[in-house]
Write a protein that binds this DNA or RNA. Sequence first.
DNA 1: AATGAATGAGTGTTCATTCAT
DNA 2: TATGAATGAACACTCATTCAT
Lengths: 198, 198, 198, 198
Amino acid sequence: MERTEASTGTAEGRRARRHDPERRTRVLDAALDVLVADGVAGLTHRKVASRADVPLGSVTYHFASLAELRGEAFRWYVEARSGEFEALFAAVRTPEDLVDVLVELVQGGPSRRRSAVLGFELHLAALRDPALRVLTQEWTRASRAVLARFTGAETAARLDALLEGMILHALLTTEPQSREETRAAVVAAVAPVSGWRA
Amino acid sequence: MERTEASTGTAEGRRARRHDPERRTRVLDAALDVLVADGVAGLTHRKVASRADVPLGSVTYHFASLAELRGEAFRWYVEARSGEFEALFAAVRTPEDLVDVLVELVQGGPSRRRSAVLGFELHLAALRDPALRVLTQEWTRASRAVLARFTGAETAARLDALLEGMILHALLTTEPQSREETRAAVVAAVAPVSGWRA
Amino acid sequence: MERTEASTGTAEGRRARRHDPERRTRVLDAALDVLVADGVAGLTHRKVASRADVPLGSVTYHFASLAELRGEAFRWYVEARSGEFEALFAAVRTPEDLVDVLVELVQGGPSRRRSAVLGFELHLAALRDPALRVLTQEWTRASRAVLARFTGAETAARLDALLEGMILHALLTTEPQSREETRAAVVAAVAPVSGWRA
Amino acid sequence: MERTEASTGTAEGRRARRHDPERRTRVLDAALDVLVADGVAGLTHRKVASRADVPLGSVTYHFASLAELRGEAFRWYVEARSGEFEALFAAVRTPEDLVDVLVELVQGGPSRRRSAVLGFELHLAALRDPALRVLTQEWTRASRAVLARFTGAETAARLDALLEGMILHALLTTEPQSREETRAAVVAAVAPVSGWRA
DNA sequence: AATGAATGAGTGTTCATTCAT
DNA sequence: TATGAATGAACACTCATTCAT
């Protein structure tokens, strides 16, 4: 179904091909929009259908249950975010570069908010849904792996925790931490790095 | 029921408190139980009533809306947790004591799980409900104040973030961090303390 | 109950007498306010209590049931309105006076609206509640009696119907009838009066 | 059910109408039954569902809110009644015919009661719901237009008001007006007709 | 006499899910 | 393949009414 390109030369095949995956991802994107706006609690077939501008039946057709829709949406998110995360560090050459990127990660404005909110929604949902825990573990593993390339595994783990906490606080506070404080915290967490590896 | 009539002060106190507070706090405790078990999304009048073993109408009588019930429950939790948190550090005399307490905070088993889950539920809910943000700010302020007594304000802030992140990871991971790693991370975060203050 | 003045010379009787009726009528007035604002369907103990600024229990204490409250409120209204109606015609000396008063009755602005709305609420409620029908009959009898003093019984009946219909239309229309049309209609209905009687 | 499949035009027509209109109109009829029996105040989804013998969900599916259901039911009623009203006057040839029809309209027994009750319910509800006022205006316009064909606009308006008032009184009184009195009132209201037009 | 507490019935509405087409 | 119709369970909330004090 996913790779029958050779066999789907007919008009019908092409049409189906053209419609279906487009639908699916549009629905998943809409689901993420709803998750950002209303949280896991507010995710409903109807809201997703409305936001994706597809019939209600289309959502239930593509996703057997709401749990599946939620899971697929979060999977879609983790994949996308892992890629972005990876990309962020592609240009890091020096410890200073690393710090810059990490500070930007925490202080990142509204553009980063969506991603951060989805991350915490996923973490909290995973607390009760083992199927989602696969995703949080994958995400934790991936992000630590990226950090570990520069800092080693142990520092990566604590750095990861620090970032998570700082981002959560940044989302909620009305008096945001100054860039300097954030930088100082990041530097302190990265500092113990004995040998630079990038 | 918990006090004999003879011991309950004034007539007003007796009349006003005969039925109410027992009910109210029992309902709030039940609400927290539901929040731990099913999250903010799963908080319903019915579940709370059932767990508190009171009629449905009793919940809606004491709390005008579900939002109010949720808010009061979280307020109740923040108050209680602030007290516990404060108490944890009462016996801290040396930097080593401080580290011990913090490690215990992160590694703390099932007993701490309830509190941690409620904390994250509150944080996520506060993202969308300004009324709850008052509580997260109060909680953040209070916990940092306690830490700052030993470490100074700036270190307290980053320590707070680190703890938050580590606790969140601890809740979700299947391969918990070793006590040594946790200790190392905490020590590193506390280390910059120039002058000990306790 | 209504005429024990001679026997209630005691302090208790006096106190009850002094507090009770004040409360009662304030509640009844509040009930009429609610009836005007929200209709018979919207009449609830709580709304009445709130508008009268008395405790909920006070309403249920003075009126055994919602039906009783409704009935007493309407009775209060009919009594008051009958008096006003009577008074309106006190100064009528000539057929021209009569017409003036009737036109004013129909065209009467917002001041008359409250009364008109209550009247129709009562009529419609009486359709299903025989207890209220006593009141509509009393009101119809009283208003016709007043009119009949000037026009005779038969003309009074049709005049009454005409007024009722015109008032109802006036309440609902966006393009109100001109004063001249109203006057013409009233004159035509009064005209057949062979012999003037006032 | 009312049409054989062979007679229902296009495929689209058939598919779209297989289930829906039967349901929808059955629900609307049931809603009118409830309105007659219990008034606007007594209109509930559950009563309607029960009377229409459909599941509760079916009512909320077809009508997004109770207000919509109420509005659609009244619209349905106004359309039907306008037709009936129109038809009543189809055979009118002389002023005497007109009077006969009008008298019948007022004196009309139980058969007319349902219609009259719905009319007053609509009028009272329209007092508070602007959406319904569209319907009362349409109904007033339509009925006056019919009358005006025989009497001219101005007489039609006052005739309309008179009829409304007489019908309302007829609904409520225990001692109904005699046919002769009704006839006399109608004749007097129609009399001013200068030139007969039918 | 007066009232706050309490409760169970009932309301409008939302929703995930199923199913016929 | 895709979707509108349909449904029954559950929800937050309102309320008349009862009752202990």
